[in-house]
């Protein structure tokens, strides 16, 4: 499916008018993007480092993981909304940018992994899951989200 019409529409939308004309607004939205990424990253890291037995070893991993879900969603929503605004400033350029598509792929994999693998699996008692599976899942999760953040930064360099 060719997504070019969406990017073309975004390039002439009201969002693009604002993001192209007001650098200050763009910078503030970019701040929210980074803060959203930090909230999401913090929740992922706390949960995954707990599964790896690195932090909060005296708190049950079920309690830690359960507490991260709500703020993971808030961080993700902040990232996506601010990301759409930021994309509107250079939407046609992004369409042809390989690093942008690498980030979108990593983001899609991260969201799918979180909602369709990690969350359903961890809703069971963690004692019933092999420790090696928990650790593998934590390492995979950290790797995916670090890739999302790193590839996002590289959009600006490519």
């Amino acid at each position: 499916m060719d997504l070019y019409p969406i990017f073309d529409w975004l390039d002439t939308s009201l969002l693009a008018d604002i993001s192209k004309a007001y650098g200050g607004v763009f910078a503030v939205v970019q701040m929210f993007h980074l803060l959203g990424m930090s909230i999401l990253g913090g929740m992922v890291l706390v949960g995954d480092l707990r599964l790896l037995n690195v932090v909060m070893k005296d708190t049950p991993s079920e309690v830690v993981i359960e507490n991260t879900h709500k703020w993971f969603g808030i961080g993700l929503a902040t990232m996506v909304v601010s990301g759409i605004f930021m994309s509107s400033a250079v939407s046609l350029k992004l369409y042809y940018n390989e690093m942008f598509w690498a980030k979108m792929t990593a983001l899609a994999v991260g969201v799918a992994f979180f909602y369709f693998v990690r969350r359903p699996l961890l809703s069971n008692s963690h004692d019933a899951i092999k420790p090696s599976v928990l650790k593998l899942m934590a390492v995979t999760s950290i790797a995916i989200w670090f890739t999302v953040a790193a590839s996002g930064r590289w959009i600006g360099f490519s």
């Binding site: 930090s38 990253g41 913090g42 706390v46 703020w71």
Partner: peptide, 8 residues
């Protein structure tokens, strides 16, 4: 992301 994440 690591620092601010923990701080948040």
């Amino acid at each position: 992301m690591v620092f601010l994440g923990m701080l948040f």
